[in-house]
Design a protein around this nucleic acid. Structure first.
Length: 425
RNA sequence: GCCGGGUUGGGGUAGGGGAUAUCCUUGGGGACUGUGGAUCCCCGGACCCGGGUUCAAUUCCCGGACCCGGCCCCA
């Protein structure tokens, strides 16, 4: 075993996996572009300070931070939002709305576990400067469309909720501490009902209110069941503005063809800065952590010394996505690319093969050539195991006739082609 | 930071206080100097690290590293 070891929690990517990753990333980029989002990028290291603005010590403990040679406290970026915010508030001339995406590498210093490494990529999308149902919908729909294009249609469910609505419910049923109650609800699926009840009781939620609320939390609601659920909990919220907005968002997402979306009161997201809609995507079987998550955070920009700018966005990590795609048998790359392996025989043959190789490349064809002294049998074996779609053979016969032999390695068919007609390939 | 389970060639494994460490696969080569995937043959390649016990440790004990999973946290 080598003494040069990989760092804990990091992963290598060999071509067989890297090709799939690149394919996934191009689907993400293309989908974002189709939705009118533009690419940005930012450094992988930031001053530790910018994470202190919106987060507590807990996050700082989990960053890859260090002092640089000028003794500045810096960190490998643990999340995308602060850098994006920094860029947004630094430019006052940007035309609104600002629609940005990117796929940064992020780092977190914590114990590796399933779907979580110390380094990962996150597809990050943000929409700044506008509010309203259709804005939220656009962001959620982009997440859905991306997953659909990855082949996951009907294999995931988006759970949405609204922070404002949740706060109204909590107030009405007697919560004395909204943020603290939110964080109890955030653990709803992880802890026993008894433990949740006990904690909510401590927040001031008791009696019939508590029973009804627990029942309300216990399931999620497709479009058809929401009114009934809100009627049943009896808080007279059916005509509430936030309720109606949440409801029409659900309706709109559904109408756009993304039907696996439900209202889920237990989806609240742990983070304190969300101000409106929050959402998370899960695989239908509930085997993995969330595939993506996000929400509206209209007040965050003001913490970065900018004006208050409406914002909604999501992050989609590569690790859970990879787990899910592997489980669904969607991790293979179907190699449909046409590629050539040029085999020259003898000194003259090799020389000619070399020239053809570069002609092919200038024609934007993918091509390599045999540079070992193998016999033709082994060369073909090699070309085949390297997944070339075609072999081009240049031997004595071809040299004489100024031609090449093109062999399709999948079908076995082969034909002669004059050098003058190389463009017919 | 905490808890559980692991670690034998590149991958998957067998074994076991003393032996040339098993088998499959991958990789390289050949049979096959102008036609691949089959078959056969040959070759290369491993006991995670450190300490302890012992005449002797890859095997037993302790510690560490790493891997898998869980907790905390989740941006």
């Amino acid at each position: 075993m080598s003494k040069i070891e990989k760092l804990r929690g990091f992963k290598d990517y060999y071509p067989e996996d890297m090709q799939k990753r690149e394919q996934i990333f191009s689907i993400m980029r293309e989908t974002a572009r189709n939705f009118g989002f533009l690419p940005i990028d930012y450094p992988s290291i930031e001053l530790l300070e910018i994470y202190k603005i919106k987060s507590g010590d807990e996050l700082l403990k989990q960053t890859y931070n260090f002092r640089d040679k000028s003794n500045r406290e810096v960190t490998l970026i643990p999340e995308a939002t602060p850098s994006t915010m920094r860029m947004l508030v630094a430019r006052k001339d940007l035309i609104k709305p600002v629609k940005w995406y990117n796929i940064p590498k992020l780092w977190r210093y914590e114990e590796p576990q399933s779907g979580r490494n110390r380094e990962h990529y996150q597809f990050n999308v943000d929409y700044f400067g506008e509010t309203g149902v259709e804005v939220d919908v656009e962001v959620i729909a982009l997440a859905c469309e991306t997953l659909d294009r990855l082949g996951l249609k009907n294999m995931y469910t988006v759970r949405i909720n609204d922070r404002n609505l949740m706060e109204k419910i909590l107030t009405k049923i007697g919560s004395q501490n909204i943020p603290s109650s939110i964080s109890v609800i955030d653990h709803f699926r992880k802890e026993s009902v008894e433990s949740i009840k006990e904690k909510l009781a401590r927040e001031g939620i008791n009696g019939e209110n508590l029973e009804k609320f627990i029942e309300f939390l216990s399931r999620s609601y497709p479009l058809s069941d929401i009114d009934e659920a809100f009627d049943k909990i009896g808080l007279e919220l059916l005509n509430d503005r936030d309720y109606k907005e949440m409801r029409s968002e659900l309706q709109s997402i559904y109408d756009k063809g993304y039907e696996n979306v439900v209202y889920d009161p237990s989806t609240v997201r742990g983070l304190s800065y969300y101000t409106g809609i929050v959402f998370e995507g899960f695989d239908n079987e509930g085997k993995f952590r969330s595939i993506f998550g996000g929400g509206r955070y209209d007040r965050l920009s003001s913490l970065f010394e900018g004006q208050e700018t409406p914002a909604v966005g999501f992050g989609m990590g590569d690790a859970v996505l990879e787990n899910l795609l592997r489980e669904k048998g969607l991790w293979q790359v179907e190699n449909t690319e046409v590629s050539y392996f040029v085999i020259g025989m003898g000194k003259e043959g090799k020389k000619r093969a070399g020239n053809i190789l570069y002609d092919l490349r200038r024609m934007k064809k993918t091509a390599s050539m045999e540079n070992s002294d193998r016999n033709i049998s082994n060369s073909l074996k090699h070309a085949s195991s390297m997944n070339f779609s075609h072999a081009i053979i240049v031997g004595e016969k071809e040299l004489k006739e100024n031609s090449i032999t093109v062999k399709n390695l999948n079908s076995g068919e082969q034909k002669m082609l004059s050098l003058n007609n190389l463009s017919e390939l």
